[in-house]
């Protein structure tokens, strides 16, 4: 089996300088691009499996690269960003980027995100109907959620929210995405709905709702469903 190929888009040579040997060592093939235009070209020609994209590029906005890529490619995109570019990061996620890693980051965090992204890519076609995490069972075929055999009663909205998050297990789902798909496009900004429902959901599904492990908060961005062991 050939190695998974990763396109690293960053204009800082020093970032490229450590990413390449690190990712190679982690078992990936690395393709480099320093500008947005190069990145678009590389996705078309080098057929990478994952794109790691820095938001600050010399020729175009990182958001623009995401938007253009999403026009014709479904390739997983992981954003690299600094904390002061919060809004750009969220905008990129809403535009279709899969995940983000905040600078400065450890290589372990990045490779974990890459693995999740690759998994998503590989089992894209087969949507799991059964999901188990931390003792919680979600059976989407029978619409049953249970913990250790005991059924948990969820309202339809809570159920929709849970299923949506679990389908993106391991990946961040932005507030806007959750709101628009569960409540509808008109409620994209109604953050308080989400906070209330996530709170209720955690009360029902978490072992210890005070320290949630299944649904994690990504401050200012959204929520991340824990990755299952299977």
């Amino acid at each position: 089996m050939s190695l998974d190929r990763i396109l690293v888009v960053d204009d800082e040579p020093q970032i490229q300088r450590f990413l390449k040997p690190a990712l190679n060592a982690a078992g990936y093939e690395v393709v480099e691009a320093a500008t947005g235009a190069e990145a678009l070209k590389a996705v078309a020609t080098a057929a990478p499996d994952v794109v790691i994209l820095d938001l600050g590029l010399p020729d175009m906005d990182g958001k623009e690269v995401v938007a253009q890529l999403r026009g014709w490619s479904d390739i997983p995109i992981i954003i690299l960003s600094a904390r002061d570019r919060e809004s750009e990061k969220i905008a990129s996620l809403d535009l279709g980027a899969d995940d983000y890693v905040e600078k400065p980051f450890g290589i372990g965090e990045l490779t974990a995100r890459i693995r999740t992204a690759l998994r998503r890519k590989n089992k894209e076609s087969a949507v799991a109907t059964h999901f188990t995490i931390d003792g919680l069972d979600i059976d989407t075929q029978r619409r049953i959620v249970s913990r250790e055999g005991a059924a948990i009663k969820l309202t339809p909205k809570e159920y929709d929210l849970l299923v949506l998050l679990s389908r993106h297990a391991g990946r961040v789902v932005t507030h806007k995405m959750l709101l628009t798909s569960v409540w509808g496009p008109a409620h994209g900004e109604d953050l308080h709905y989400l906070r209330v429902f996530i709170g209720q959901l955690r009360q029902k599904i978490e072992r210890n709702p005070a320290e949630p492990v299944i649904i994690r908060t990504e401050p200012g961005v959204g929520y991340r469903f824990a990755e299952s062991a299977n």
Binding site: R17, L19, A22, K103, P104
Partner: peptide, 11 residues
């Protein structure tokens, strides 16, 4: 520079 250092060390 911080990102480079952190990244390189963790790598």
């Amino acid at each position: 520079p911080l990102a480079t250092i952190t990244g390189a060390v963790s790598s």
